[in-house]
Design a protein around this nucleic acid. Structure first.
Length: 238
DNA sequence: TAGGCCATCTGGTCCT
DNA sequence: AGGACCAGATGGCCTA
């Protein structure tokens, strides 16, 4: 049990007769009594009013010590009801706060996904990519951009295009080699020599990234024509 | 109507 | 102790 809760509960135990403002919304003493009092049929008629120290004897059927025990039990029962209500309320308020944080966290995640979508090539049909499509597309897009740089390096003398275009710290961030191809042969043989499907470093070589020609995610505006013609890396994955 | 996608809630676990 | 993160459950909405 959390310490703060224990503190609250111990406070409760020490003030069984008060209706603290901290407990507003919980059971009042009257409500506790109404809930905890046994039904009249079970306990019989209420005990007759007892006399004080005036010398008149109290009711002989209920000894004073026994009545004190009953009162103590009632007080303990009321305290337990209040403490359970308080525990439930504290748990509830913490859960509500946790739900709020979780909702906010997911909103932030969705905002990041939207930002990612905004920098990916868009398509005429303007269909919004799903989350998984966005991630897969981004992965493949990065790979394709890296391939463009690699091809540019091959055609440009006097230094690496990648080094000219990318800050050094970005180069190690490029996608690493995904898992080996499982169905690369199914994409024909004409482009196989230069296709990412035959390139073990291509995302398309992974069955998790099975995009390809004919799918809107297949082509990238702005990428080299040569690469686009040889990059069947965006096959519909479903 | 079934299936996919999504938002939200929830409890558990890890981290600071 | 409290927050972040994660995964499972659930229900709503949309589409083929």
């Amino acid at each position: 049990m959390p310490a703060s809760l224990e503190t609250c509960l111990s406070d409760l135990e020490c003030s069984t007769s008060s209706s603290s403002s901290d407990l507003s919304g919980f059971l009042t003493d009257e409500e506790d009594c109404a809930r905890l009092q046994p039904p009249a049929s079970a306990s019989g008629p209420p005990a007759p009013p007892r006399r004080g120290v005036s010398g008149v004897p109290v009711a002989p059927d209920v000894p004073v010590a026994q009545e004190d025990d009953q009162e103590k039990r009632r007080r303990r029962g009321r305290a337990r009801v209040r403490s359970e209500a308080l525990m439930h309320s504290l748990r509830r308020s913490r859960r509500v706060k946790a739900n709020d944080r979780e909702r906010n966290r997911m909103h932030n995640l969705n905002a990041a996904l939207d930002a990612l979508r905004s920098v990916l090539p868009s398509f005429p049909d303007d269909t919004k990519l799903t989350k998984i499509e966005t991630l897969r597309f981004a992965y493949n897009y990065i790979w394709a951009l890296a391939e463009t740089l690699r091809l540019a390096d091959q055609g440009l003398p006097g230094g690496s295009a990648r080094e000219r275009l990318l800050p050094p710290q970005c180069v190690p961030c490029l996608p690493g080699p995904p898992s080996p191809a499982s169905d690369a042969e199914s994409w024909g043989s004409s482009a196989a020599a230069t296709s990412p499907l035959s390139d073990p470093s291509s995302p398309a070589a992974s069955e998790d990234f099975a995009y390809g020609p004919g799918d809107p995610l297949f082509s990238f505006p702005g990428l080299s024509k040569d690469l686009l013609h040889t990059t069947p890396c965006f096959v519909p994955y479903h």
